[in-house]
């Protein structure tokens, strides 16, 4: 409950960016509310199993963030439908008709994973054994067997990088940044669970930008025995036994390649969250061609939206890893704090 004179901040989106920004703002003494459209906080990360580079359980990380939210009011299963400015405050109308007033907003609408159905040639939603990286995280999280069925012999799994990222055909020119490391992590995990399995990663180029990622990549090859093939998948189909026949080009060998696999994992990239555009329109936040929000100055004011009192946090401004998201959320909280101090 706000005390007299206590300034209010509403955080739109309760993923890890929104959680961290809200926790920081509450710590700074602001009356903070998270509005989250899903039934729970944690966003996409709450669906993951374990996290690169060190394999920490995603659930533990989300829980750790959640524990910092005790002073924060959390409204789940709702969204902001209308925003009006009145005497320096925003009047927000939520989906259920309730109204919130706030002195500042942090927008952390996050991302959704690319809809793999759109890469029709990969057969997602058509062939049973084609799954996404998000599906695999869910299966690992729930300790589901990856290869149900009677066949007991060694299995073959292919990971396809850059599905919905760096792909002009689907309109996403940008790199989703986290998928390369995630693929290496998942491929290694499959080898850990099924040591006899043959695991292949088909990549365009591996973007191992963090100082620990390169080691993870080397370990995947030297210790786990994951095979890396530079080349993009052209198509997938199903043979008489229901196994998947995939075609690609090995661009290092300059040879076409055909392989039969038991599972195809599509490393789906990040796209702006489904409600992001309406939030942008409501709060007059500039949006790039890719649908992500544009900050006023991406180098020096990367959390400022250009709309007074509206700040941006996390993957709503573009793909980020978890540490980057957390750092960005803290920066957004700091920017909001500076704005509110100046205002008073």
């Amino acid at each position: 409950m706000a005390t007299d004179g206590q300034k209010k901040v509403v955080v739109i989106g309760g993923g890890i960016a929104g959680m961290e920004a809200a926790a920081q703002l509450a710590r700074m003494g602001y009356d903070t509310t998270i509005v989250e459209k899903q039934a729970r906080t944690g966003g996409n990360v709450a669906n993951w199993d374990h996290l690169f580079p060190e394999g920490r359980l995603a659930g533990e990380v989300v829980q750790q963030l959640y524990q910092k939210l005790s002073p924060v009011r959390i409204i789940t299963g709702s969204s902001v439908k209308k925003a009006d400015m009145l005497e320096g405050q925003y009047i927000l109308t939520l989906a259920d008709g309730s109204v919130l007033t706030t002195d500042a907003l942090v927008v952390s609408t996050g991302f959704r994973t690319f809809d793999a159905h759109r890469k029709e040639e990969y057969g997602y939603g058509i062939y049973d054994r084609v799954i996404t990286s998000a599906d695999l995280e869910g299966m690992l999280n729930e300790h589901q067997p990856l290869f149900p069925g009677r066949h007991k012999g060694p299995r073959r799994v292919a990971f396809i990088h850059c599905v919905g990222s760096r792909d002009e055909k689907v309109g996403n020119r940008y790199c989703s940044k986290a998928c390369c490391a995630m693929a290496v992590k998942q491929a290694s995990k499959v080898k850990e669970l099924y040591p006899d399995a043959e695991v292949y990663c088909f990549y365009m180029d591996l973007r191992m930008f963090d100082r620990r990622y390169e080691q993870m990549y080397l370990d995947a090859q030297a210790k786990s025995g994951v095979n890396f093939i530079r080349g993009r998948l052209s198509e997938a189909s199903e043979d008489l036994q229901g196994r998947l026949v995939i075609k690609a080009e090995d661009t290092l060998m300059s040879k076409p390649l055909k392989m039969t696999v038991d599972m195809l994992v599509l490393m789906v990239g990040m796209e702006p969250a489904s409600g992001a555009r309406s939030v942008a329109e409501m709060l007059k936040i500039p949006v790039g061609h890719d649908g992500f929000f544009n900050a006023t100055n991406e180098l020096l004011e990367a959390n400022c939206s250009g709309t007074p009192g509206v700040f941006l946090a996390g993957t709503c401004t573009g793909p980020k890893t978890i540490p980057e998201t957390i750092a960005d959320a803290r920066a957004a909280a700091t920017a909001a704090d500076a704005y509110l101090r100046k205002k008073s």
Partner: peptide, 10 residues
């Protein structure tokens, strides 16, 4: 093969 998946595309 899931026919529903093809119908979705069709």
């Amino acid at each position: 093969m899931k026919l529903a998946g093809k119908k979705r595309i069709w």
